[in-house]
Amino acid sequence: MAAPQPSLGTCLVVDDSGVVRRAARRMLENHGFLVQEAANGAEALAACRASLPRAVLLDWNMPVMDGLAFLRAARAEFGPDRPVVVLCTTESDLSRILEALAAGAQEYVMKPFDEAILRDKLVQAGLLPRGEE
């Protein structure tokens, strides 16, 4: 609690790939987020219960508990608005996107992604202010 609080709050990165988590962490920290990591939906849910993050960057396909199961559990437990959930997955079929939106996701990143895409999506989700180019 004594640590300096970045103005953008905490983003929980949920992905079973350590490589993806590290890449996302670097991008999010550059923007001023405090980053936590979880390797599956169950870990993510535990982290949310301990302290609700402002945002969750959420992979879909993971062992133990997948992203959609986490999303439904989080919406049931914490309500529709918090945390802001941005899917980040190789699932890019329209039907999957609609499924995630119906389950309460605010934004959706289709992998592969880069810094520019992630920044744009964080802006769309209201997590980052819109900067002039």
């Binding site: 890019s92 996107i97 939106l101 992604f113 769309q124």
Partner: peptide, 15 residues
């Protein structure tokens, strides 16, 4: 492309 529709578009507008 998937890359282009992820620049500047919300997911709601995409669908």
């Amino acid at each position: 492309t998937q890359f282009e529709v992820q620049r500047g578009l919300s997911i709601q507008r995409l669908v």
